[in-house]
Design a protein around this nucleic acid. Structure first.
Length: 773
DNA sequence: GAGTTTGAAACT
DNA sequence: CAGTTTCAAACTC
């Protein structure tokens, strides 16, 4: 198709592969120059944002809650998929059959970005941008992935011409033909019909292409990955991991994905996402990438929802939307997060979203610190959205969460996000977990539902019902979450509103002065054992995160009273709980098995199970290091336990006898967060490098390890099989999950890398590997 | 919907 | 730093 003119391609040409479609394909990919400045910038932003955000502690100031923005937005995006246009039904089935990818969570790493990434939506993107290309590319990648994917391919091959499929196929062609592709893409997209026809054709023709892609993908080192992205390493690692995952299934979406990445990377900065990659995997829609993400996001169930499908207009629109979608990710960062709109429309209206709750303006301190992305008000929110997501959507929520997490990846683990940010994030997670676990409860009283209602953004309103605290104390969830109380709140004498901004800020500062970690998330999903342990000062961020431990006595850590449980994480050393039975992981020794305990886990697990089911059944989940599936998140603890041995944090350090008290720990941790802000710039730089490391850590390492089998049992598999089933380490069989565990394990690895923001990526790794003597 | 339980936050 | 009180969520009826 294309000429091997490109220098890089030249090598291949030299090889004599020029003629091969694969070669062509590769050429297309490889040629892609390093991300354009703008692109790079985007990428950087993502990472930065994540990094920065955490550092800056976005939440320092309360954020306006977009209370009601549906976090679901993501879904919407996914919904948007052209499929609807063609045949929702087909799509549905496909979706079900097809694999969905989970976004990798980097959340731990990235604290903030989540929001941004998560949202595909709305922000109208300029088609002019590569976005279109990228989109198209994404779809292509998707296609590729899909094509490779059994189900998808089957469909295409079958000539079923699902809209999505067809589109995908077409996209691929376009991809193959030209990287630039936007035009091509457009053309391809423009005609849905065309797609179909093309599909058939492509199906025929493409195989070669796919193959090529596939091959490329297979090659970890393939130029594609390496080439483009600054993150190349990551991508590679990802690919590897994916491959590993795929390996299970044999071919893999992933394989294709790599291409996807590459292309994206080349064209779009946004693509950098692993998530995007994953998205690529998504069959659905051509529209997709962004959509892909969305699709991923979308719960299996949701696919059914007409809304989800979005009445996207047509291909053209879809394309356009695509662009927007991608953008949306960033846009969201920009603070445009629109939670509310689950619906397709949401994208466009993204901005329109009306957060009822407003996030409190960044703290004085934090504000300046806020780095671009991080700064975005929306940052915190995204996670919450998950929680907000109705049970129905829970699954999707997970996905979303995953996506979000992935977005987070960039953030250097080392830097702990500002407490506030973390809080948000945590909240999100918690919410997610809550959603899962709490689902039942949520049904009950509004309060219970409250979290669910949350936008999902960290910023969403918590619907507090404070009476005496005036919503100026941590008792107030809204205040604690850094958001202003909004309509949903039933609080009395509330001062947590814009009109009292000064009061709020001052109060926050006071609280933070007391306890830097006061606004830090109660539970950090990061499974990093070390962090949990809080031992390493180096990893202060982590420690800070985990500073709090529960002090449950009667709840046995089996109820929401327990922060750990509520957060969906197992209890850690820092916990002082008595009779800990935390299903997610018991404190200390108990932990490992606790997860498996069906009894305890039953409730919580249910949530996890649900998610997992969906995922398993229909989705391919790609876990990245940090990303614990939401469901997985639940598991984190156990994994952590297991991990610990690996992580081997210094035992002494690990133990913080009184870690619970935020105060003591907080001081240590708290500062770091702020420091992080200052460090932010560094972080960004580091981030990239870290990111790669991180990716490796997460994906690569875990995957590699798992693949290799060397891995300690701990590094259980996170791998998802292309087959649609996660490949879980043998051990986990229980409902919960193998996956979860595996995910956690991975996380653990990743964790080590994070710890030192300032870090040192290298150091981190080393440290992680070799716990301090 | 009201009341009780629970554990964190705040206070001393 | 430890103990107590206050608070609001979580939970139960």
């Amino acid at each position: 198709m294309d000429t091997p003119d490109r220098p890089r391609a030249g090598a291949a040409a030299a090889a004599g592969f020029e003629d091969s479609p694969v070669f062509n394909f590769i050429n297309n990919l490889s040629p892609i120059p390093p991300p354009k400045p703008s692109d790079t910038a985007h990428n950087v932003q993502l990472f930065k944002s994540s990094d920065l955000a955490p550092v800056s502690s976005i939440f320092a100031s309360p954020h306006v809650n977009p209370a009601k923005e549906p976090k679901i937005l993501i879904r919407d995006d996914s919904v948007q998929l052209p499929q609807d246009l063609h045949s929702p039904n087909s799509v549905r089935t496909r979706v079900g059959s097809t694999i969905t990818f989970r976004m990798i969570r980097c959340r731990d790493i990235v604290s903030e970005n989540c929001n941004i990434n998560c949202r595909l939506n709305e922000a109208p993107i300029d088609p002019s941008d590569h976005t279109s290309n990228s989109e198209s590319q994404l779809p292509q990648s998707m296609k590729n992935g899909v094509g490779s994917v059994e189900s998808d391919k089957g469909q295409c091959a079958d000539g079923k011409t699902d809209l999505t499929i067809s589109q995908e196929c077409t996209d691929l062609e376009g991809m193959n033909l030209d990287e630039s592709g936007p035009d091509k893409m457009d053309s391809s997209h423009s005609g849905m019909d065309l797609h179909e026809s093309q599909l058939s054709e492509q199906n025929k023709d493409e195989p070669a292409v796919y193959n090529g892609d596939y091959m490329i993908a297979n090659q970890p080192n393939s130029g594609m990955l390496t080439l483009g992205l600054p993150f190349g390493t990551e991508t590679q690692s990802v690919n590897d991991t994916q491959e590993a995952d795929n390996s299970n299934s044999g071919k893999s979406l992933l394989n294709e994905e790599p291409n996807y990445y590459i292309q994206n990377s080349a064209h779009e900065p946004h693509l950098y996402w692993t998530g995007a990659v994953e998205g690529a995997a998504v069959d659905y829609t051509p529209q997709a990438l962004p959509g892909a993400l969305q699709s991923q996001l979308m719960p299996c169930d949701k696919l059914n929802d007409p809304r989800d499908y979005m009445p996207t207009e047509q291909n053209g629109l879809s394309q356009h939307l695509r662009g927007t979608r991608r953008r949306s990710l960033f846009n969201e960062k920009a603070g445009a997060s629109n939670k509310s709109e689950d619906k397709a429309s949401d994208r466009r209206s993204v901005n329109s979203t009306t957060p009822k709750c407003k996030t409190i303006p960044g703290d004085i301190n934090s504000k300046p610190l806020r780095t671009p992305p991080c700064a975005l008000p929306g940052i915190g929110l995204h996670l919450n959205a998950l929680a907000a997501i109705p049970k129905e959507k829970i699954v999707s929520g997970d996905i979303q969460s995953n996506i979000i997490e992935s977005s987070n990846l960039p953030c250097p683990a080392g830097s702990s996000p500002p407490p506030s940010e973390q809080n948000i994030i945590n909240d999100d997670f918690a919410q997610r977990t809550d959603v899962a676990g709490a689902e039942p409860s949520s049904q009950g009283s509004p309060k219970k539902k409250r979290h669910k209602f949350d936008n999902g953004d960290g910023t969403s309103c918590k619907r507090c019902s404070c009476k005496k605290s005036k919503c100026l104390k941590l008792y107030c969830e809204c205040f604690a979450a850094g958001v202003y109380c909004s309509e949903p709140c039933t609080c009395q004498g509330c001062l947590n509103n814009e009109s009292h901004m000064e009061t709020v800020l001052s109060t926050r500062q006071q609280i933070e002065s007391r306890n830097p970690l006061a606004f830090a998330p109660k539970v950090i999903h990061t499974s990093e054992p070390g962090l949990e342990l809080g031992d390493f000062s180096n990893k202060t961020p982590a420690s800070a995160r985990h500073k709090r431990g529960c002090n449950c006595k009667k709840s046995s850590c089996l109820k929401k009273y327990c922060e750990c449980f509520q957060g969906g994480v197992g209890c850690s050393i820092s916990c002082r709980c008595e009779g800990c039975k935390n299903a997610f992981g018991r404190r200390e020794g108990v932990a490992a098995l606790s997860i498996e305990e069906p009894k305890q886990a039953s409730e919580e697990n249910n949530a996890c199970v649900k998610e997992e089911k969906c995922e398993i059944d229909k989705q391919l989940v790609i876990y990245q290091a940090t990303d614990l599936a939401p469901a997985e998140n639940l598991l984190t603890t156990p994994s952590m336990v297991e991990c610990r041995p690996l992580a081997c944090l210094p035992p002494s350090s690990s133990k913080k006898p009184s870690s619970k008290k935020p105060r003591s720990s907080t001081k240590l941790a708290g500062h770091p967060s702020r420091l992080g802000n200052s460090q932010a710039p560094l972080k960004t730089d580091i981030l990239l490098s870290q990111f790669g490391n991180y990716a490796e850590m997460v994906l690569g390492d875990s995957t590699s390890d798992t693949l290799k089998g060397n891995s300690s049992p701990q590094t259980s598999v996170k791998v998802v099989s292309p087959n649609k089933k996660r490949v879980s380490p043998p051990r986990m069989g229980t409902g919960l999950s193998p996956i979860c565990k595996s995910g956690r394990k991975l996380i653990l690895k990743s964790i080590p890398s994070f710890p030192s923001l300032g870090g040192d990526l290298n150091n981190e790794d080393q440290k992680s590997k070799t716990p301090a003597p």
